[in-house]
């Protein structure tokens, strides 16, 4: 029979030391990543607040809204974002739901289609669009919004597709239909509420895409927000950097808020 050795009341040491090693490796990864991502932000911030005479001033941030063209650029970009978002959702949501319900075998095909915008670089796509677009559309920035929908498709579709995978869609729809609800009502009051997270992700990705897209907008010669930053940089580089920093941190804060709201939603059991 085994001899029992009395032990001091402490957990196995070697094991915790091994875990400690993994924790140190992790910390090292975070420190390196933190340096790589934060040092450039800090460098740009220092550049923005330094004044030509060698002093430091935060006034550059306060003056942003008054800069020439800033509000126009923001207005235009918001407009494009709204148009693209509406079209994207109207196009992607019913299609994704339909495919899940009626043609599950088409999922792979559709997945392939949504990959196409990655195969076709935006710079190539805009050449073709400008070539075939009717003159009436060519004269308006809304053409950009229509093309942005194509760029947003992969992200939006993927987000929704995984969201649909995660819910018992067929059961939900059949239950709703058997209780007498029509297709429209089923979609709006049964399916969409269950896709909250996925929809949120699709919205965020689409809006972020529009607010960051430079290639097409600049080649189509409209001054959206990203284009304005570049144009204005020639006039006042410090303001341009300050705006970029604010935009970056602002988006981050927004995403953080959304992730908090999303996490707080009641779980299915409470609903």
């Amino acid at each position: 029979m085994a001899a029992v050795i009395t032990a001091p009341p402490r957990a196995p040491e070697k094991r915790s030391r091994r875990r400690g090693g993994a924790a140190w490796a992790r910390r090292l990864v975070f420190v390196i990543a933190g340096l790589y991502f934060l040092v450039p932000l800090y460098a740009a911030f220092r550049f923005a607040i330094s004044t030509p005479d060698g002093g430091i001033s935060g006034a550059v941030f306060a003056g942003i809204p008054a800069q020439e063209g800033f509000l126009d650029a923001i207005t235009l970009t918001v407009r494009l974002a709204v148009i693209s978002l509406v079209i994207t959702l109207v196009l992607v949501v019913p299609t994704a739901v339909w495919v899940h319900l009626r043609m599950p075998r088409l999922r792979r095909v559709l997945e392939g289609v949504t990959l196409l915008p990655i195969v076709v670089p935006p710079v190539v796509l805009i050449i073709g669009v400008l070539e075939v677009a009717p003159p009436a559309l060519k004269g308006t920035p809304d053409l950009l919004a229509l093309v942005y929908v194509v760029l947003a498709l992969p992200f939006a579709y993927r987000a929704l597709d995984s969201g649909l995978q995660a819910i018992p869609l067929r059961t939900l729809v059949e239950a709703s239909r058997s209780l007498g609800a029509g297709w429209g009502r089923t979609l709006v009051s049964v399916v969409l509420p269950n896709l909250r997270s996925a929809l949120l992700a699709a919205v965020v990705l689409t809006v972020a895409m529009v607010f960051g897209e430079y290639t097409m907008a600049s080649l189509d010669q409209y001054e959206t927000f990203p284009v304005w930053i570049v144009v204005f940089q020639q006039a006042n580089a410090r303001v341009s950097v300050a705006v970029s920093l604010l935009a970056l941190l602002g988006t981050w804060a927004l995403l953080w808020l959304i992730s908090l709201v999303d996490r707080r939603r009641p779980s299915p059991e409470d609903a």
């Binding site: 085994a2 001899a3 029992v4 050795i5 032990a7 009341p9 196995p12």
Partner: peptide, 15 residues
Amino acid sequence: SGTVVVGGRDLRGVP
């Protein structure tokens, strides 16, 4: 706290 002994060997600290 406590001990785990297998075949006479104390496994404290054994990964």
